[in-house]
C-alpha cells in the first residue's frame, strides 16, 4: 500500500462521484435514479458479483485494502456508506 498524505484525501462527494461513474459503466440500470442513501442491493444496482467488482475497483482506485470484517458487515450498501468508509480508510492511511 502507498502511504498517502492529507493532500491525497478526497472529499466524500468526489469519492461518491467516482463510485457512481464506475457503477454506471457496470450496471444496465440508470444509476442517476439512485440517491446517496439508496440501498444498492435492494434496488438491484448491485448483486453479489457486482459487489466483488466494486471492491476490486475501490481497492485499485483508492489504493486501500479492506478487511473481511469491513466487507461482510453491510457497510458498503449505499453510495454514502461506500464514500464514508473509503474516506475513513484514506484518512487512517495518511
Amino acid at each position: 500500500m502507498i502511504k498517502l498524505n492529507k493532500a491525497h484525501i478526497q472529499s466524500v462527494e468526489s469519492i461518491e462521484t467516482k463510485v457512481r461513474d464506475f457503477l454506471s459503466g457496470n450496471s444496465l440500470l440508470d444509476i442517476s435514479q439512485a440517491h446517496s442513501d439508496t440501498d444498492l442491493f435492494k434496488q438491484g444496482y448491485l448483486d453479489s458479483y457486482g459487489y466483488i467488482e466494486l471492491i476490486k475497483f475501490l481497492e485499485t482506485e483508492f489504493q486501500i485494502l479492506f478487511s473481511d470484517e469491513e466487507l461482510v458487515s453491510g457497510n458498503l450498501n449505499t453510495f454514502a456508506n461506500v464514500a464514508h468508509l473509503v474516506r475513513t480508510k484514506l484518512e487512517s492511511a495518511a
Binding site: 442491493f41 435492494k42 438491484g44 448483486d47 453479489s48 458479483y49 459487489y51 466483488i52 471492491i55 476490486k56 481497492e59 479492506f66 473481511d68 466487507l71 461482510v72
Partner: peptide, 26 residues
C-alpha cells in the same frame, strides 16, 4: 433478489462469499 430474499441473502453471506472470498475471479 426478489424470491425468498432472506434465504438468498443468507446463502450469499454465509456460503457463497466465504467460499470465494471478496476478490474472486469470475
Amino acid at each position: 433478489q426478489r424470491w425468498h430474499i432472506t434465504l438468498s441473502t443468507w446463502l450469499r453471506d454465509y456460503v457463497q462469499l466465504p467460499m470465494t472470498g471478496f476478490r474472486a475471479s469470475r
